[in-house]
Design a binder for these strands. Structure first.
Lengths: 183, 183
DNA sequence: GATAGTTGCGGAGCGGTGCTCCACTTGTCA
DNA sequence: TGACAAGTGGAGCACCGCTCCGCAACTATC
């Protein structure tokens, strides 16, 4: 039993609509609207996701897990710097999927109470291993920290979002940033 | 005559309260609250500033003008790269004065209809002269554009805002960025 | 199948928001 | 001092996030 069948169905419906709404209107999309689009009462939405953050969390956790796995798969790459850059590119692209999301990523990193924190930390540590490997190979300056790196990339992703040609701008900014990271 | 004395007074009161409110609650502070704190009806606020952007504009224009003047005064500095870095630091710090403002800066840069656009462009061009001078001196890579530079610094300012120690983080990120900008 | 009981649902309601509109007050100039 | 344009203020509209609880619907048992 645990969960009733209709509850499970509504949960999935809400999640799908939330994903669409956040992609369309950014992270401050109307939750009433999400419920409406899912054909469900507003109370039902709040029953399943007590806060807006809970909703974001559900969406972002898979993001984080994917990034962690990606980082781990890159740990055996020959070119450590290229591996790091590839991962940072995907991190930035993932952040940009929903407007306003980079802010949530950083907030989750900061707030240890956040339920997102765990999966976010796991992702960060996978990224840190990638960084350390590149540093050990002398490809990245030793004094660069993982926190700094994530903040940097989040900032670039954010700035690119605002530009006329986001993808192109992100590419330029990432390239410049990588130059600053090398010894 | 032109404007009545009381209207002028209310305008100034509103502007002062708006500045305080934006600094305290970010750029989405409650306008009703601004009017309340200024001891004025909400209608009066909207009479003077038809949109939230108009209010931001009035506040930011002085910011931009100050940045432009600063850039111009740095044009005669001996160390072109240091001059650029100093100005970028002030740009970032100015952006961070109000949470959420960097986004408005970039939006104004993008939107040519914006009333902010003119003063923003003037500031950007003053910054661009600073950049070109450093490039001519061989201190900054030639292919870096002014747009890219402003986006970069805005992104770093934004990311720093989110960090635990904003000022310190901004310093680290700016240093890394400058490294990426040098040939 | 029928039934009991728990689980989940929906939306009215509260206090807030941005913004509009217009009856009324107030400053100004003749 | 008065006429009148300029300026005011807040009621009102449609929305928001979020809470609460009477009621409907699903499920385990018989």
């Amino acid at each position: 039993m645990s969960t009733r069948a209709d509850a499970r169905r509504n949960y999935d419906l809400l999640l799908a609509e939330a994903r669409a709404a956040f992609a369309e209107h950014g992270t401050d999309a109307s939750l009433r609207d999400v419920a409406r689009r899912a054909g469900v009462g507003i109370g039902t939405l709040y029953r399943h996701f007590p806060t807006r953050e809970a909703l974001l969390e559900a969406l972002m956790r898979s993001n984080f897990d994917g990034l962690r796995e990606h980082a781990e798969s890159l740990l055996t790459a020959d070119d450590t710097a290229a591996a790091l850059q590839e991962w940072l590119g995907r991190l930035a692209a993932g952040s940009m999927a929903y407007r306003g999301l980079p802010e949530s990523v950083l907030a989750a990193l900061r707030d240890e109470q956040s339920q997102l924190h765990e999966s976010c930390v796991a992702m960060r540590e996978a990224g840190a291993r990638l960084l350390h490997r590149a540093q050990a190979a002398g490809r990245i300056r030793a004094e660069v920290t993982a926190d700094e790196l994530l903040a940097l990339v989040s900032g670039l992703a954010w700035a690119s979002e605002q530009a006329r040609h986001p993808a192109e701008m992100l590419d330029r900014l990432l390239t410049t940033a990588m130059r600053g990271l090398t010894p």
